[in-house]
């Protein structure tokens, strides 16, 4: 965004509207989740036990902390403390990376045990349990893609700050990037209990 939009509030409103579309995008999957949970409560209970709550909790803490740093980065830039803003932004991105690495090991372990949709090992499981994992992979997968996009966007914003295209006088890009990142956190706040804690 090299040319400055004249309208700060308008740019922010546009970002919020975009976030709504993200919420509704996941919303379709939440519809599927809600219906399937209502249909197979016992199977979901059982399948949920197979997920590693410790891993999930760690990732929750990582993402909430990352979200904190994103919020701090915006405040720092508003206070014209560019150095701090950049450090906070880097910390945000690093924690996003930690989240992904964690997720990689988690998925890897599950897939290593033959627990993935279409795997012959789970073909004779109760349908509800299979559905749990189909939804688990779809939703955390889509969430993971959002993490990757978020990292790229925040990285780009870092570069903009470096180039002084995102400044204490013109911080809307960072603010909008932060909004996006909080949304990714927000979705995880729901995914975490729905998959890890209903055991």
């Amino acid at each position: 965004m090299s040319e400055h939009p004249k309208d700060y509030l308008g740019a922010k409103m546009g970002m919020w509207l975009f976030l709504f579309t993200e919420i509704l995008l996941f919303g379709g999957l939440f519809v599927l989740y809600a219906v399937t949970l209502q249909r197979y409560p016992a199977e979901f209970h059982e399948a949920s036990k197979m997920l590693d709550t410790t891993m999930g909790t760690i990732n929750t803490i990582v993402l909430i902390t990352s979200s904190l740093f994103a919020a701090l980065a915006v405040t720092a830039l508003q206070k014209a403390d560019i150095k701090k803003a950049k450090i906070f932004l880097i910390l945000t991105i690093i924690l996003a990376g930690v989240f992904l690495v964690n997720k990689y090991f988690e998925w890897g372990a599950k897939i290593g045990h033959g627990i993935y949709p279409g795997s012959p090992d789970i073909a004779d499981w109760a349908p509800g349990k299979q559905a749990f994992f189909a939804l688990y992979y779809t939703m955390t997968g889509l969430h993971g893609i959002h993490i990757v996009i978020g990292m790229a966007v925040l990285g780009w914003i870092y570069w903009l700050i470096e180039k002084e295209k995102c400044t204490p006088d013109y911080f809307i890009v960072l603010e909008n990037g932060g909004l996006y990142w909080h949304l990714v956190d927000l979705i995880w706040i729901y995914l975490f209990p729905l998959y890890y804690l209903i055991a």
């Binding site: 197979y40 949709p117 349908p127 559905a131 749990f132 189909a134 939804l135 779809t138």
Partner: peptide
């Protein structure tokens, strides 16, 4: 994924 497949809970 089997999300809409009744045999797999869909």
């Amino acid at each position: 994924m089997g999300i809409f497949d009744p045999a797999r809970g869909g």
